[in-house]
Design a protein around this nucleic acid. Structure first.
Length: 575
DNA sequence: GCCGTTTTCGGCCCGACTGTTTTCAGTCG
């Protein structure tokens, strides 16, 4: 519902932009963002307090709240339909074509009756577009290339599909002697779960040389453009990288600017203006005098606020908190003392328990938890009660060996049991009670009514043997939505029973996600960051879960696998 | 159309690049 409404307001913004209406487009876009970032169904907000309550949504005022009411009552917004009637085109997809914006869409419709991406492709192939005003042969060619990309690649990339390659490129650039400083920027630096394109920022006295090196890197298949200060390329894998070269004295302001988010920047710039200053990518200026810019920290300081970690820069209250000196001290990788969700070769994972333990030790952990699947999950070779007991014996033996070697490390005995359709657990209590910890998760019957699914999970939460709920909302990023659940009720039950909610670090899941993490933290719920590794190298994915936790404002105290070995054993016994 | 610890009126982020022009509009981030 919220997304439907947000989409309508985005569309209205684009239509207004076509007609050169001033400022209204931004207003509608802002409202769309405000609605999109709600954690609550807009129908519930309306039910609670009508128009007055709607007006509390950021970017929503009198006019737009009335339009929301109209939509909730009639399922449509008249003005939107009128705009759409005038130019009835597939805005959503046409806007995804690089180089095509509102004005061009209007022109293409008026002159060539182009309504869809398919129409656009056809017209370009028939060489009709080059004849239009403000278009030419080159833009026609670019349109075709953008359409090819659009078709190949409708979704954004997941973070882990891009981050490692970009880190490699950064390494190559660092090796050049002309590169004085370098950083990843953009949503990649903010560790957003999906990435549209990558940004790299460089300080150099010889920008042209850097740009030249960059556009001829391995893996570059197309150069979109290359100027003195920036180059833009398409990589073989199908995403774009923008490289910007900036002078040393502006590195901080450029990094701040290109890290975003856009909404965060708009607010920081506005605060600059309020203080009689001007902030752009070249620095923070008082009149013509530059007062900050070399590093990010001095900019935030000059704006009268604490330094804000990149993961927080989404304009979700971080700026207000920074002004009041109330930012959280975010959990860090070095705080993580163990991983409680690793699958061994007992359930068809790739590696033995010993290998997993060794890997955990190499990560400087104090413990690792083996959480094999249980019997209901036949396809994953889930263990039954008898096998669990046998496996536990092996773990006991390994622990004795580790103890003899005088290492401060322990393998913890666990399982990832299944929450059945009725909320029961597929392993008998007497065996569950022999575990150091029990994770419970849903691996079947994903489609249930909201009520049923919520009750199912709450029943598992209330089971005294269950310590942790794995991937609590079940989403697969860009693939599968979360289950229909009442997250408030689930949080309430987790709090009452001191059940830990997992932040699953798999880059395909990242579940809980950032907004829920923030909410859970505010409710005082404990969380754990687990990798859910089915093979050793997946244990390195901890950083993705950690970033999600940081994006959710999580501090060390919120995350139980920052506890020492001794303390986590105590914690797990208490439930 | 929204918003306000100066404002209920008068602001609203801003610069680079491209492709089309021949001084600039559109798009992007």
């Amino acid at each position: 519902m919220n997304e439907d409404l947000a989409k309508i307001f985005y569309e209205m913004a684009i239509y207004l932009e076509m007609d050169d209406v001033l400022f209204k487009p931004q207003a509608y876009e802002k409202a769309a963002i405000g609605i999109e970032s709600l954690n609550e169904d807009i129908r519930d907000i309306y039910k609670r307090g009508g128009i007055k309550e709607l007006e509390k949504i950021p970017g929503v005022g009198k006019n737009i709240s009335e339009k929301i009411e109209e939509f909730l009552k009639t399922g449509r917004i008249k003005e939107h339909l009128l705009l759409k009637k005038k130019i009835p085109v597939d805005l959503e997809n046409l806007m995804k074509i690089e180089g095509i914006g509102p004005k061009k869409i209007k022109e293409l419709y008026k002159k060539l009756k182009i309504k869809t991406v398919e129409d656009l492709e056809k017209a370009a192939l028939e060489k009709k577009i080059r004849k239009l005003e403000n278009f030419g042969e080159k833009s026609e060619k670019n349109i075709l290339e953008s359409i090819a990309f659009f078709k190949r690649n409708k979704d954004r990339f997941l973070l882990h599909q891009i981050l490692p390659e970009v880190k490699e490129i950064v390494k190559k650039l660092i090796s050049l002697k002309d590169v004085k400083k370098i950083s990843i920027a953009g949503s990649l630096r903010r560790m957003k779960e999906t990435i549209g394109d990558a940004d790299i920022l460089v300080v150099s006295d010889d920008p042209e040389k850097i740009n030249e090196f960059f556009i001829s890197l391995d893996g570059v298949v197309k150069v979109w453009g290359s100027g003195k200060t920036k180059s833009s390329v398409r990589m073989k894998r199908g995403y774009d990288i923008d490289l910007r070269v900036v002078p040393q004295k502006s590195f901080g302001s450029a990094l701040q600017y290109f890290t975003g988010s856009k909404e965060h920047n708009i607010l920081t710039r506005r605060i600059a203006i309020e203080k009689g200053l001007k902030l752009n990518e070249y620095g923070l200026f008082k009149g013509k005098k530059m007062i900050a810019g070399k590093d990010e920290r001095e900019i935030y300081k000059a704006l009268g606020m604490e330094y804000i970690e990149p993961e927080l820069r989404e304009n979700t209250g971080e700026i207000e908190a920074a002004i009041k000196n109330k930012l959280p001290k975010l959990v860090e990788l070095k705080d993580i003392k163990g991983d409680l969700h690793c699958h061994s070769n007992w359930d068809g994972g790739a590696d033995s328990i010993l290998e997993i333990a060794k890997k955990a030790m190499s990560l400087n952990y104090e413990y690792v938890g083996i959480a094999d699947h249980t019997k209901f999950l036949k396809i994953e070779h889930g263990l039954d009660e008898r096998q669990l007991i046998l496996r536990n014996k092996e773990i006991d033996k390994l622990n004795e060996k580790i103890k003899k070697e005088n290492k401060n490390f322990k393998i913890l005995k666990g399982c990832e049991a299944n929450i059945m359709g009725d909320g029961s657990i597929d392993i008998k209590d007497e065996v569950l009670s022999q575990m150091d910890f029990v994770i419970a998760g849903i691996h079947s019957q994903f489609k249930m009514s909201k009520r049923e699914m919520t009750e199912r999970i709450i029943k598992a939460i209330k089971n005294p043997h269950v310590d942790i709920i794995s991937h609590p909302t079940g989403r697969l990023i860009n693939k599968r939505d979360e289950y229909l659940i009442d997250i408030d009720e689930i949080f309430k039950a987790a709090k009452e029973t001191k059940t830990v909610l997992e932040i699953n670090a798999s880059p395909y899941r990242l579940d809980l996600k950032d907004v829920y993490i923030k909410k859970a933290k505010n409710e005082g719920i404990k969380m754990i960051i687990n990798t859910d590794a089915h093979q050793l190298d997946q244990m390195d994915l901890m950083e993705y879960g950690l970033s999600q936790a940081r994006r959710g404002w999580a501090e060390k105290e919120d995350i139980i696998n920052t506890l020492s070995l001794e303390d986590i054993i105590k914690f797990l016994k208490e439930k």
